[in-house]
Design a protein around this nucleic acid. Structure first.
Lengths: 341, 341
DNA sequence: ACAGATTGTGCACACGTGTTCATATAACGG
DNA sequence: CCGTTATATGAACACGTGTGCACAATCTGT
């Protein structure tokens, strides 16, 4: 049974098709298709023979052609995520991909760059995606309206989006910031500062607003309000700069863990401060690194497992019932007490 | 111009097709296809009208149907990667995705789980992929033979694979380990230990072999040879265990940076050792974190940018010339001197 | 043994696109 | 005015699959 690799017009060898398997096994093409369809009417012996021949020839049904069917699904789900240098992003992306695989979906991932151009996202919309997941990032809302026209469900996570018909899963950032302030105050801190991330991200805006609101409620004014870039280096530089001007600060809330770790390092290495005694620090997200003994960072948990399981649930429900009303899930943050507060 | 969302058999609204655009614009379907094909013969005014109508209706050519063409490409490239908890993996994945996007390819990513089952990989082979990139991980070589039958080019990176016809880009791990040993010896260390990662990964086997060979060349015997799991926690536990039995060690080579950071933390926190004076440590990979001031880890750079650009180059060349002889690129590691040796 | 239900099978259609082919129109040089 | 070339256009085909439909074969119960 020699494989006679027939070639395309440009001489490029082509993929084995069901037609060729049918010919080799002496059956109709329909039978081949049915042999790969669980529950279809095919004689058991014939199915086994077909599968054997297919195995021999290295045939697999072309998922593209299958997805072209009127009621077929492509099983492709695009994930738009931000810069993976942010560990929270990469950790949650990993869990998300794993969950999608378990659902039989294949993630097409856009990201790695700091800002993904809208053109790139529109490019992937050329595929008849089962869904589009917007994980953080700063892609414009117009993408959602494009998806609406293409009947591609959109699920947003970790960011704000007002668009109608879009499911959303997001941590209650304001509440998280409020908890952080309360914990710092409970510890006895009285001169609090804030280090924010990228201001164009809604997560940063909400955390900042939550910090300011909680401070106002407590009748206090912040000692410092800085903006950085969500990175370790950014947090380091911000605190280095801050402490070189004033040491009148005893508590610091950082809008994510990476900046908190950078801030802590700067305070220790550059100024010899003791954390938390000289300066208490609380981060946000609870990335894996926060629990490392070298850091042992107190932080606000932005629960990845719950976020992912909600996203997957919403995805499944929407595929079953496209007309379903959209949901907005707010996930309650949780304070993780470690050694820096 | 009302969009009359026609529905599939199951009542699910369907995607706008070129047919509908043609009808709405009063032209043939061919004209619509040509309007989206640069350089095709279409009257300029007509093309603009078609594009306007398409915009209005939210039409985009279905990439699946286009990829079905005999000489068409799907523009999908699968990336099989390992556990993204390993920061080296997630950093290089980000760069790789970015590069593929720039080439007009869409990455379908498998990973996130520690061990990706071969079944998952075979699943994604259902799509007529332009290529499959195996980044590290421990997927069996049989995947490559499956790909060969399907005429899907395979590019392997960060791991060993003997299979014929497979392009490969990999750091010279043995050489890297040798450099590490030489640097530790040059510093004056005489009682060296090794902490390895997951033994079923070829990268670990090579680094271990390189360490042993370099030690033998220097006429020395290692004080300790441990195996861990490539994680921070693993490195921490290994060193905690090691140093509680003996302190007769003054130099440590770790098979990746995460373990090196864990090892350093354990030595400092648990035993109050000074790094590098009491114990010198060298890692492997040069992840972003290694440069953080808190760590300032001396390490062997496993150059991501060069790796990625080689992968992309090989991919492009193979798409142009499928019959091209396969290449094996070995990337020279480079010692990055920081503060831990 | 016979009616009815179940199981097996091939033909033909639909899915949405890019592209060849034949044909029609316009441009152009003489 | 004709002959040649460049441009424009719609019909038709190919891509590879799942499945509805009509019909054949086999099984089940009385």
């Amino acid at each position: 049974m020699r494989q006679q690799t027939d070639r395309g017009k440009d001489g490029k060898p082509r993929r084995i098709t069901a037609e060729q398997v049918a010919k080799a096994a002496g059956v109709s093409r329909s039978a081949v298709s049915r042999a790969f369809t669980p529950g279809a009417y095919v004689d058991k012996a014939k199915r086994e023979r077909i599968l054997f021949v297919a195995q021999e020839l290295g045939y697999r049904p072309n998922a593209l052609a299958a997805g072209l069917q009127s009621n077929g699904r492509s099983n492709l789900v695009a994930i738009v995520t931000g810069d993976l240098v942010n560990h929270f992003d990469s950790e949650i992306l990993a869990k998300l991909m794993q969950g999608l695989n378990a659902m039989g979906k294949w993630p097409v991932v856009l990201g790695g760059s700091d800002d993904i151009s809208e053109a790139e996202v529109l490019g992937v919309l050329g595929y008849p995606l089962d869904a589009l997941i917007l994980r953080g990032g700063s892609v414009g809302e117009s993408v959602a309206t494009h998806c609406a026209k293409l009947n591609i469900p959109v699920i947003v996570s970790g960011r704000n989006m007002q668009t109608e018909g879009v499911d959303s899963v997001c941590c209650d950032n304001e509440r998280g910031a409020e908890i952080a302030v309360q914990q710092l105050l409970a510890r006895g801190c009285r001169r609090l500062g804030y280090i924010g991330g990228l201001t164009y991200l809604s997560s940063d805006q909400e955390r900042r607003a939550g910090f300011e609101a909680a401070m106002a409620t407590a009748g206090m004014a912040p000692v410092a309000m800085l903006q950085s870039d969500y990175s370790f280096e950014g947090g380091y530089a911000a605190v280095k700069n801050l402490l070189s001007q004033t040491t009148e600060i005893d508590g610091l809330f950082c809008a994510n863990d990476a900046m908190a770790l950078g801030a802590m390092s700067a305070a220790q290495k550059e100024f010899g401060l003791k954390v938390p005694n000289d300066l208490a620090i609380i981060g946000f997200d609870d990335i894996a690194m926060a629990a490392w003994p070298s850091f042992n960072l107190s932080t606000i948990r932005n629960d990845m497992d719950r976020t992912v399981s909600h996203i997957l649930r919403l995805l499944g429900e929407r595929l079953d019932a496209p007309g379903k009303a959209s949901e907005t899930i707010r996930i309650e943050p949780q304070f993780i007490a470690r050694g820096t507060h």
